[in-house]
Amino acid sequence: MLKEITIGQYYPGTSILHRLDPRVKLLGTLVFIICLFAFGTTAAYIVAGVALACMITISQVPLSFILRGLRMVLILMLVTALFNLFLTPGTAIVQIWKIRITVEGVKMAVHMVFRLSFLVLGSSIMTLTTTPNQLTDGLEKGLGWMKKIHVPVHEIAMMMSIALRFIPILTDEANRIMSAQEARGADFHSGGIVKRAKALIPLLVPLFVSAFRRANDLALAMEARGYHGGVGRTRMKPLVYRRRDFAAYLVIACFAVLMFLAWRFIHLELPFLP
């Protein structure tokens, strides 16, 4: 169950998206998300959908891999859609007893589903084409200006990259401890909520103990290799903008403009679509 997580899972490749500077991809994703919220019309979403389709094609990541990210938020999406479907006031289409579905509700539900799935797909493309390390490097460099206002950017980035490296290790460990306790007759899969929560103690205690032990070991290993914070550090792979990165910034800007234009000037009147 823990193995299903795809966010933060890099899909190795050599596409142009893989080679872009992580700062470009981070900003691109940010712009994409902001546009989704700011320009929420059918026409704009068509633009966003086309852009997304292009990115997926360029990334060369198999579609099944990208869609896996969607599966995770499926329940969230269903719940949001149902809430919107039943609880939005407006002109009723169907009414059974006190439950009514309105035109506005359908519109809202469709809208939410698209917004959420575009959001997830957009960020999945970024995480699938960027190694966690590039990502944290990008954040560290991109947010470097925040050091001036005493935000410990380097430390945060280091913590993130270490956390990312240890996620698979701790996941394996959790699975192993779970199996070990099951071998002692533990039952994680049946019973009520209280019983299940209680059954987690034999899993969580050893997991925390182990996480602390690892953290301790790692701190020691880092210290032994002369780590003393971000001051005076050089980089093995410093981030340098290349021509393709500037081109990508241009593409992002064009996308934002297109979204704005579509939202402002094209009004598509489609039934059941916002």
Binding site: T131, P132, N133, S161, I162, L164, R165, I169, R213, R214, D217, L218, A221, M222, R225
Partner: peptide, 8 residues
Amino acid sequence: DNQIIASV
């Protein structure tokens, strides 16, 4: 496992 810091 506990002394390798980077992911590559």
